[in-house]
Design a protein around this nucleic acid. Sequence first.
DNA 1: AGTATATATGCCATAGATATCATATGATAA
DNA 2: TTATCATATGATATCTATGGCATATATACT
Lengths: 103, 103
Amino acid sequence: MIKTPYKLFFGTLSNEIRLKILHALAEKPKNVTQLTNELGFDQTTVSKNLKRLATCQFITNKKIGKHSIYSLNKKTILPLLKLIDRHVDKYCKNCELLLNERI
Amino acid sequence: MIKTPYKLFFGTLSNEIRLKILHALAEKPKNVTQLTNELGFDQTTVSKNLKRLATCQFITNKKIGKHSIYSLNKKTILPLLKLIDRHVDKYCKNCELLLNERI
DNA sequence: AGTATATATGCCATAGATATCATATGATAA
DNA sequence: TTATCATATGATATCTATGGCATATATACT
């Protein structure tokens, strides 16, 4: 059980697959099959992670026929990632090193 | 092994204890003992989570004698939390409901 | 109806993250 | 030096989160 929005939201963003999905959707809206082919994960894995991203409203979806098309919520995600990028730039130039050790 | 900065940073923020530490440090800089007493966790737990927060530069520390004083990096953390707050306000008014179910 | 395609959900083994115990290191004072 | 306080680290048991299998649901077409 997730207790706070912060934990829910940041937890959603701390997953490689979900980050890749966000990246893939940054280009343009895509359906599940497209994402599955592009990313190479199981379709059920993609679906579940899409659900979690949608729950957080980081993405939205629109059903058209059999297809479920997901779009990035750019208004939130882009500033969020930009903030982290600026933080890395400003404070974590040597961050690469830390990534190789367990913290 | 943590592979990307995003996963590292967002993972750091998706933990109750670390969020509480950030909240406690928002008030003023504190040392490990103060935080331990205030939050009620084991001292070693507090120390380790402080380390991870410091690794991400979300907090900084200054050693004075035997004491290690930690301060919030307000320039990053405050805008970050504000961004999430605005997102919740804008898109996730009913978010409380989702928090009670597994995603 | 049946078939094919697209997406979603329940279950579960397992990988990953976590808190705590025991212990170590460091710093100050007697 | 020894004792004490403050903080940090290593090992480990436990808990959580995860991806993928099997399956279910949904939609469209014949």
